[in-house]
Amino acid sequence: HMTFVALYDYVASGETDLSFKKGERLQIVNNTEGDWWLAHSLTTGRTGYISSNYVAPSD
Rank of each mutant, 00 (worst) to 15 (best):
R25D: 04
Y8H: 08
W37Y: 05
Q27E: 11
V29K: 06
T44W: 02
T16P: 05
H40F: 13
S13M: 13
T47I: 12
V55G: 04
W37R: 02
N31E: 08
N53C: 15
L7R: 05
V11R: 06
T16M: 13
V29G: 04
N53K: 15
I50C: 02
Y49H: 05
S41Q: 04
K22E: 05
V5F: 06
H40Q: 13
E24I: 03
N31P: 10
N31S: 12
R25T: 12
F20K: 00
G14W: 11
F4V: 14
S52G: 08
W37A: 02
A6N: 01
N30E: 10
W37F: 06
T47M: 10
S58R: 06
A39P: 00
K22C: 07
L42D: 04
Y54A: 15
I50D: 00
P57R: 09
I28L: 08
V5A: 02
K21F: 07
A12K: 04
Y49V: 05
N30M: 10
S52H: 07
V55L: 09
A39S: 02
Y10W: 06
F4G: 02
S41C: 04
W36C: 14
V55S: 03
S19M: 05
R46P: 00
N30H: 09
S19H: 04
A56C: 14
F4H: 06
V29H: 15
V55H: 03
L18N: 00
E24A: 03
F20M: 04
K22W: 03
K22N: 02
Y54R: 05
H1P: 12
T47W: 13
Y8L: 10
D35T: 12
L26S: 00
G48C: 04
V55I: 09
G14A: 14
Y54G: 06
G14I: 11
S19D: 06
S58F: 15
Q27H: 11
Y10T: 03
W37P: 01
D59K: 10
F4L: 07
L38A: 01
L42P: 07
A39C: 03
Y54T: 06
F4N: 00
E33H: 12
I50Y: 00
K21G: 05
K22I: 06
Q27A: 09
S41G: 01
D59T: 12
L38Y: 09
M2K: 12
V29F: 10
S52K: 15
T32V: 10
E15K: 11
R46G: 06
P57L: 12
W37M: 06
N53V: 12
D9T: 06
Y8I: 13
T47Y: 11
A39M: 12
T16K: 13
Y8R: 07
Q27S: 08
S41T: 02
W37C: 05
N30K: 09
W37I: 07
F4Q: 02
